[in-house]
């Protein structure tokens, strides 16, 4: 789970998405194929090689008002076509903390 803040070279080993945090509230979002952002990973545009990743990241960076800190993150695509986060960090970003809230809901 090397921090993507240290991501210097764009080299992807499998299907990936661009993720960021929405500017006004900070929630986790994913870049869509329609040049927008979605909070749902299943809406994310999937890239499969470095050139695609670079292009998607470039357009994401250009949308500075919509979201901040975009980076490329790995995903896994199941046999049913469902997209899942590719590592623990992204799993936590998608589903929330692993520890439960101290506040009883």
């Amino acid at each position: 789970m090397t921090s993507p803040l240290e991501q210097k070279k764009i080299k992807i080993a499998g299907p990936s998405v661009v993720t960021a945090n929405r500017t006004w509230d900070g929630i986790v979002v994913y870049r869509t194929a329609a040049n927008g952002w979605s909070a749902d990973l299943s809406d994310a545009a999937i890239v499969r090689n470095s050139d695609e990743a670079k292009a998607l990241l470039a357009e994401s960076v250009a949308d500075d008002v919509g979201a901040i800190g975009p980076y490329i993150a790995p995903v896994q695509i199941g046999a049913d076509g469902k997209v899942q986060p590719g590592n623990l960090r992204e799993q936590i970003r998608r589903t929330g903390v692993t520890i439960g809230s101290p506040v009883q809901v």
């Binding site: 945090n21 500017t23 006004w24 509230d25 900070g26 929630i27 986790v28 500075d64 008002v65 901040i68 800190g69 960090r89 936590i92 970003r93 929330g96 903390v97």
Partner: peptide
């Protein structure tokens, strides 16, 4: 929020007010 400031310009200003960006928010 209006886009008048980019994140690069804003980052130091928010940090000076204790605002970081973390995983979820």
């Amino acid at each position: 929020l209006s886009g008048e400031l980019t994140e690069d310009e804003f980052k130091m200003l928010r940090l000076q007010n204790g605002v970081y960006l973390q995983l979820h928010a």
